[in-house]
């Protein structure tokens, strides 16, 4: 494969909601500085894969390694502290807290962060004017920026973005793509799940296609037929 060193190495991942098994024997990797797309329709298991990485659902795997460390048995907060930033599907901004307070929660007390307020507001200039705004009274796009920013201040090496363009105005999606490309250029790695492939095509190197909790296809992002959504894609694969 590629010459990039592996950052995230997952082999034989299974996950459950209560008694119901959602993921079956998933294997995938993310290299350092690489952006990888998880593609698949609703209910394919993309979000669950990301929650399983973070330890938010019951999971088991033959190998779950991040930067050489085994994360299979770690509680959520330790996975995060190793350097995985998680931006969940519905963003999950703390609605009662202001933008500044939301950012503050992402910081690790006592640990220096590359991501000072100045650096954050340089990446997302729009947020600078909203510092005192309550998280609950922001638009979907603004919340999405804040969610990414909130993860960044924890100094992650890998950003997990679950449907980052869902419910976000197209103009904001373009701004988001710009910001993510800058992050990638500075060496950030990504795992991104998307139904709309515009953002993925702009950022990702490779893609995995999921269906019913299993990996069905993997390859370079260029091999994904241009402009097709995941539903169309999968029908073509069949």
């Amino acid at each position: 494969m590629r010459s990039v060193p592996t950052l995230l190495d997952i082999e034989g991942l299974a996950a459950w909601y209560g008694e119901a098994q959602i993921l079956f024997d998933l294997s995938f990797t993310v290299g350092r500085g690489e952006a990888v797309a998880l593609v698949g329709r609703n209910g394919a298991g993309k979000s669950t894969t990301m929650k399983a990485l973070m330890g938010l659902v019951r999971r088991r795997a033959r190998r779950m390694a991040f930067a050489g460390r085994d994360i299979a048995a770690l509680p959520t907060h330790e996975v995060a502290r190793l350097g995985i930033g998680y931006v969940p599907e519905d963003r999950r901004i703390f609605t009662d807290l202001t933008v500044a307070e939301n950012l503050d929660l992402g910081r690790r007390p006592g640990a220096a962060s590359l991501w000072t307020d100045a650096a954050i507001f340089e990446l997302f200039p729009h947020l600078a004017g909203l510092r005192a705004r309550a998280g609950g009274s922001m638009s979907g796009g603004e919340q999405q920026m804040l969610a990414v920013a909130r993860s960044l201040v924890g100094n992650p090496e890998l950003l997990i973005l679950d449907e980052p363009s869902e419910g976000v105005a197209p103009i904001i999606v373009e701004q988001m793509i710009g910001a993510l490309l800058r992050l990638k250029a500075s060496g950030m790695s990504f795992l991104i799940s998307e139904q709309n492939s515009l953002l993925c095509e702009a950022i990702c190197n490779r893609a995995y296609v999921m269906e019913q909790g299993e990996m069905r296809w993997q390859g370079g992002i260029d091999a994904l037929p241009a402009g097709s959504d995941s539903v169309g894609l999968f029908t073509k694969l069949k």
Binding site: L56, P88, F94, T95, L97, L105, R108
Partner: peptide
């Protein structure tokens, strides 16, 4: 205080607080 902000945040969404690297326990 940060402790107070943590309480308010955890009141709304405990999982997300943990996902930000905060020791829930």
């Amino acid at each position: 205080t940060r402790f107070g902000r943590l309480i308010r945040a955890a009141t709304q969404d405990r999982e997300m607080v943990a996902a930000l690297g905060i020791n829930e326990a």
